[in-house]
Design a protein around this nucleic acid. Sequence first.
DNA 1: TAGTGGTCTAGACCACAGA
DNA 2: CTGTGGTCTAGACCACTAA
Lengths: 221, 221
Amino acid sequence: MAEVERRIYTREWQPGQSIPNEADLAIELGCARVTVNRALRTLAEVGLLDRRRKAGTRVALHPVRKATLSIPLIRSEIEASGKSYGYHLLSQQTEPAPAPVTQKFALANNTQLLHVVALHEADGDPFVIEDRWINSSIMPHLVDVSFAELSANEWLLQNTPFTHGDIDFGAKNASQREAELLATEPDKALFVISRTTWDQTTAVTMVELVFHAGHRKHTRL
Amino acid sequence: MAEVERRIYTREWQPGQSIPNEADLAIELGCARVTVNRALRTLAEVGLLDRRRKAGTRVALHPVRKATLSIPLIRSEIEASGKSYGYHLLSQQTEPAPAPVTQKFALANNTQLLHVVALHEADGDPFVIEDRWINSSIMPHLVDVSFAELSANEWLLQNTPFTHGDIDFGAKNASQREAELLATEPDKALFVISRTTWDQTTAVTMVELVFHAGHRKHTRL
DNA sequence: TAGTGGTCTAGACCACAGA
DNA sequence: CTGTGGTCTAGACCACTAA
């Protein structure tokens, strides 16, 4: 793997150029084909190579490097930064869900769904607002749960299996209420993550996380 | 792999619980140990399992699913959405770099560096402002390049190898100038990606991408 | 120190998709 | 069609690290 990386890095193998097939490389490098396969597969996962059956392996024309963002529990995220975690439930009630929500959940308009809003704090400072809709129609026992102590973020992660999710990253201007909760001015630009979580084909929950002003999500590639 | 996923999903193996070791699983499932290894390694990469030598493999306590964001060329990103790509160089000049930049580049304050600002368009609408500093001290031939036709984004990707990068996702209020360029109002919340690219231990370039109002970066997990 | 995952080998068959 | 990557096997040694 190091040798292949070196050849790509030194442009010995140019972007777009196709490289020898696995069998040949194995002979040239004096190792087993499986080993070559493992190396090339890993480099392809990172985005450095493009691989297609029969067509062979090419150095990626545009090294579309892939950034891997880990999406931890909010509590873990805060505690990992060495700060103390605080949690406040702001509201929890069943109410008619707005159109964008019922649409995602494939339910009739104005269906009654569980709506939970909470504030997470780091060292006493507001960190993020969690505004969540939960598809209570598929979780009947849910209505008895109180999210006063344990956040919905945490409860769902531990109690509801899911198969996949959609994530959007974006920005929004703080509303009056958001500004108050996050101790900033209205209209301040806030970083937002919206996530919908699916179990097979049914949406389980939709959440909007509105972070405090200046928050950035960091990763490496 | 499917069988292991099933056991995790159905809570047959509870979060936090440790699962049989590779050798035992191979026997139980009637396959080779390498096959088990490959499956468990893949699931660990996704964040579903935690693996440590000697300690064994456990179902992740908090399924820290990892979202993979691909960071393509801006042109590719626009063309992939079926829109036509437009590019305008706004300025390109060597000037004293501000402190945060020289700091990252590990250079003396006010070092003269190449500063390029450009606007990328999708179907004629402003898409993103690219504001970039380039460590010209390590690329002497760079001063002759004009980014009037080919964006720095593209030129660098094709001409400068890099080993890794830092990425930040965040939000900012539009400045007067940004608002004009992106055809929106000042103070509008804009989604921002900041990236620093490294070659071994030297920073190659720093770029801030300020996207048009309402832009969201999407991915799945 | 011993148990676990990490990695490698040589050989094999298969599925897919490009020529 | 056929070359390519995808995947599997049985066996082996090694590196790390928790007990």
